[in-house]
Write a protein that binds this DNA or RNA. Structure first.
Length: 937
RNA sequence: AGGCGCGUAGCUCAGUUGGUUAGAGCGCUACCUUGACAUGGUAGAGGUCGUUGGUUCGACUCCAAUCGCGCCUACCA
């Protein structure tokens, strides 16, 4: 025996993965039906966070499962260039060194990013390896690699040629900090406290309202935008203002004469019923302005400072300073009617967290409706299926209301838009500048300038399934693995990614990108709160695997905190929650926990106690293997005649239930049920019962060589099956243990990875053996219950008397008698005649719960008390059992007394109730009998 | 405002077509270092399944209403 007494994850995990990778075990092999998953490409800026770790665990479980089932399994991996995120990171790093983008220029900056990617961007790949993910590294891709970039350009050009990409001046979400447009999806709308200012706008030309006022009142949450107002709108049916429509107001501070217009969009109930209209800085106002042909006055520069379209005194002011100034000036002018506290939705950029400004600029858009329609149909028709299904609603509702997609970003890192302008500003699109010239019929000497924008990072991600497999070439991989089988991802990127993949893939391959989308929940902390830097409640999967000290964790959580006060809170909390840091739980425990917690359609509260439990589970597996190996010297001793006991047949039969559940659960993406089945079988059937049941035989092996041999073979067979069944969840420990035991089974395999996942018919079903062992368990549990309740010392043996029961009980007893001694610490066993008067005993009654319903009298499991126990305790115990029994009996009697029940319920159900009734009466009778006997003493 | 989901033991969660004594893990209590494992063993306590109605012989399960929580989308002058 050369393995230690306790499971040490770091000792077994080191080196295993490298071996698998070196031996090419992750590459597709054989000629089975292809199976393919593409990895949701992590950003090169990412560290592997707990959400990735979760997602990778699920994907790897699927991959390993299908690989073991003989599928030609490809796990396509790669990373995303993460356009804005990466530019921000590298830009910040340069700035720390005092280098500004403008100083070094575009090309030098892009070179810096590539440098950074080569040095730092590889972290995530190392971490994926630590998770045990069996991805095919030989096929690793990057959204900016040459081939993938070619696919991106190809898609752009083809969409342009079809008129599905256009360029135009539109109001877009503008990030004044990053100085780029972003798409609707990249805007986070949060409720924030703010104010609502009410301004008086004087009517021009002496006009008055129906109420005789010489002004109208408008309300705004953004006073500075009034500098760009070009109308005041009222509802067409609003009697108060009907007479004003077509008249004008004088815009205060600016002095511009602007019309009063009527538009249905105005809600007469809100505020005064008058709305200021700023078509260049508000999406609703823009729509109104377009309808009414209003002037669009843009008052901001790219950084949201006020431009020259505003009166001189505001020019150059930051938007927030301009707001203060406008409010002050209005107040001074006596035009500030009111200010109230107001909660409003503030749009912020998801990367910069800056307040987004609707801003008029020239941008590139994808005309999305023609792409969305087939994508909606694909899901309606079931060509793409969401698991769980409810997420299809989310998909549909967004897709049916979808707006054109702004794909241009005013940044440097990313796929540069393949459009070129001649000196007159005409657009020439081409895969290369040379092609653009040819397509535009331009001579070589005509100066062309490429568009400076790059594409939204999600534009390229949308091509991920087919782009990674070689498109636009018609590669064998594309033919073999596309459409991919399943996409595993979180609901947070259904719109960003899933929907866009479906659209683009259908458009360019005519195929769906994947047949299923498994949507998993988000990992939250133990209290269910989102893990975030500002909360300081994040956990790094690597720290769970390798362990970390309290100080290390504090340092990590409080690094680069914007507010030092927050750092203090986080430190205190962290020290309270992790006074001893985090022990090294290992990858397997982490993975098992993820699988077990992956119940469908809900977020998971991540509790380290769960990890600890599954680490313990690994230890259990480890020691079960030690036990088995400890009883087998060499494979030779397994040769020879065997005689299987009911226990052997029982555990083999039980293993079938495990296998059935595993297959079914995985097919339904119920990783939790799968993991629980493995846990339950390994711990509570194999270890708790089967291993214990073999001990009487193994410890006396010399006396029953054939039974011992059968037990050893069964221990090995079932353990080996269990390891294979568990391997997709816990690859490291199963590989380690499998390699130890496989030689005893004559296996020459080099890895468990390529053994077959257990099939349901591998082990025989044996109902009779299951009944026997269930009977035995019931009797043993009954005795243990008596022992426990009456405080019989565990070291002390007891005698056992049985009485009553039927032929079946006697049969089971005959089969299992030899096992009772060790399991329940029973010394002598005697079966009393039905009419014999038992000595003073403690009794448990088994009335057919686990035995056949043919029993005609309750089986009394009796432990002679003699000096063992005090009568009071036993009396109390019996009274409690009688109470419970009577409660049950009353319920059943009520049911059976109900004529409706007897008449309408299915006969089988009625029969079951009758059986239960008889059983309860027998049990109760025996218990009462015993109680009165006790009282008589 | 619309949509989706959730409310089951102290905590985190299972509960597949309505019929179970409503389960698991962790936590808790008592006892135990017995020759795989104290990262362990044995036994035990703990739930009127959010609330109210309805359908049914029978509801944790189906329907309706209601309360609470979460998320998504839209709007918010």
């Amino acid at each position: 025996m050369d393995i230690k007494g306790s499971f040490d994850p770091s000792a077994i995990e080191a080196g295993l993965y490298e071996g698998w990778e070196r031996d090419g075990h992750f590459a597709p092999r054989g000629n089975g039906t292809p199976y393919c998953i593409v990895i949701p490409p992590p950003n090169i800026t990412d560290r592997l966070h707990i959400g990735h770790a979760f997602q990778h665990t699920l994907m790897d479980a699927l991959m390993r499962y299908h690989r073991m089932n003989g599928r030609r399994a490809l796990w396509q991996t790669g990373t995303d260039h993460a356009q804005i995120a990466t530019q921000m990171v590298v830009e910040r790093q340069l700035l720390e060194k005092g280098i500004k983008l403008e100083d070094i220029g575009r090309q030098a900056f892009i070179d810096k990013v590539w440098d950074w990617k080569r040095t730092t961007g590889g972290n995530i790949s190392r971490q994926i390896r630590r998770m045990g993910s069996s991805v095919d590294w030989s096929r690793e891709r990057f959204t900016m690699d040459e081939g993938f970039s070619r696919a991106v350009i190809e898609v752009f050009v083809r969409l342009w040629d079809e008129g599905l990409i256009y360029r135009g001046k539109r109001l877009v979400n503008w990030d004044p900090v990053l100085k780029t447009s972003i798409s609707d999806l990249e805007v986070d709308n949060n409720e924030e406290r703010g104010q609502l200012w009410h301004f008086r706008y004087p009517l021009a030309d002496g006009a008055t309202t129906a109420g005789g006022l010489d002004h109208v009142v408008v309300a705004t949450t953004r006073p500075e935008t009034m500098l760009g107002d070009t109308a005041v709108a009222v509802h067409p049916d609003d009697e108060r203002y009907r007479s004003l429509v077509g008249k004008a107001v004088t815009l205060p501070l600016v002095g511009r004469r602007i019309p009063v217009i009527a538009d249905d969009h105005v809600d007469p109930e809100f505020g005064s019923g008058c709305v200021k209209i700023t078509p260049a800085h508000d999406f609703d106002d823009h729509a109104i302005g377009t309808r009414h042909g209003l002037e669009m006055v843009n008052i901001f520069e790219a950084d949201a400072t006020v431009n020259d379209n505003a009166p001189p005194s505001y020019r150059g002011l930051d938007r927030f300073e301009a707001r203060r100034r406008v409010v002050d000036d209005m107040r001074s002018a006596g035009l500030l009617a009111d200010v109230e506290e107001h909660t409003l939705t503030v749009p912020r950029g998801d990367r910069s967290e800056a307040i987004i400004e609707p801003w008029l600029t020239d941008q590139w858009f994808v005309k999305i409706k023609p792409l969305a329609e087939p994508a909606i149909k694909a899901v309606e028709d079931g060509d793409v299926e969401f698991v769980p299904k409810q997420y299809e609603n989310m998909y549909f509702s967004w897709m049916r209301e979808i707006e054109d997609w702004c794909i241009s970003r005013q940044q440097w890192w990313g796929h540069r838009i393949p459009a070129y302008y001649d000196e007159s500003g005409n657009i020439h699109v081409g895969r290369t500048e040379a092609e653009a010239r040819i397509r535009g019929g331009l001579a070589d000497h005509v100066p062309l300038k490429q568009d400076g924008d790059v594409l939204d990072t999600w534009f390229s991600s949308a091509l991920w399934t087919f782009g990674t497999l070689g498109w636009p070439e018609r590669t064998p991989e594309l033919a073999t693995y596309h459409p991919t089988d399943v996409l595993v991802t979180g609901y947070d990127i259904i719109f960003f990614w899933v929907a866009r993949m479906v659209m683009m893939t259908l458009k360019f391959t005519g195929e769906v990108p994947f047949r299923k989308v498994h949507i998993h929940g988000m990992v939250r902390d133990a209290e269910g709160a989102k893990m975030s830097k500002t909360r300081g409640n994040g956990l790094d999967p690597m720290d769970i695997i390798d362990g970390i000290t309290t100080d290390g964790l504090v340092a990590k959580r409080t690094a680069n905190m914007p507010q030092p006060r927050m750092a203090e809170t986080i430190e205190a909390r962290t020290r309270r929650e992790y006074p001893n840091g985090i022990p090294a739980y290992g990858t397997d425990a982490l993975r098992f926990a993820f699988c077990a917690m992956a119940s469908q359609g809900r977020d998971l509260a991540f509790d380290l106690k769960r990890i600890e439990g599954y680490r313990n589970f690994c230890n259990k597996l480890w020691n079960a293997t030690r036990f088995v190996l400890g009883h087998i010297e060499d494979p030779g001793e397994l040769d020879g005649a065997v005689r299987e006991a009911p226990a052997d047949r029982w555990i083999r039969s039980r293993s079938r239930h495990l296998v059935d559940t595993a297959h079914r659960s995985i097919a339904n993406y119920r990783f939790d049920l799968y993991a629980n089945a493995v846990y339950e079988f390994a711990w509570h059937e194999y270890c708790d019962w089967y291993v214990e049941l073999t001990k009487p035989v193994l410890f006396e092996a010399a006396n029953h060589p054939e039974q011992a041999r059968a037990a050893k073979k069964t221990l090995l067979d079932v353990l080996e099956l269990l390891l294979r069944a568990a391997h997709p969840i816990v690859p490291f420990i199963t590989e380690t243990l499998w390699l130890r035991i496989a030689p005893f089974l004559g296996s020459t395999g080099h890895t468990i990875m390529h053994q077959s996942f257990p099939r349901a018919d591998e082990q025989p079903m044996d109902g009779d053996a299951e009944s026997s062992i269930e009977w035995l368990k019931a009797v043993v549990t009954a005795i243990r219950n008596v022992r426990g309740e009456l405080n019989v010392s565990p070291g002390r043996t007891v005698d056992l008397l049985l009485q009553g029961g039927g032929a079946e009980d006697r049969h089971r007893f005959g089969e299992c008698e030899s096992l009772l001694g060790r399991l329940a610490r029973v010394e002598a066993v005697r079966w009393l005649d039905d009419d014999a008067e038992p000595p003073p005993v403690a009794v448990q009654v088994i009335g057919g719960r686990n035995v056949g319903e043919t029993t005609n009298s309750a089986l009394k499991v009796m432990v002679p008390m003699a000096d063992l126990i005090d009568v009071g305790a036993e009396r109390a115990r019996l009274a409690k059992a009688i109470d419970a029994g009577e409660r049950d009996l009353r319920r059943v009697e009520a049911k059976l007394a109900n004529d409706n029940f007897v008449a309408k319920a299915p006969p089988a159900v009625v029969a079951k109730e009758r059986n239960k009734h008889d059983r309860l009466r027998r049990e109760l009778g025996a218990l009462k009998d015993q109680l009165s006997r006790l009282d008589g003493q």
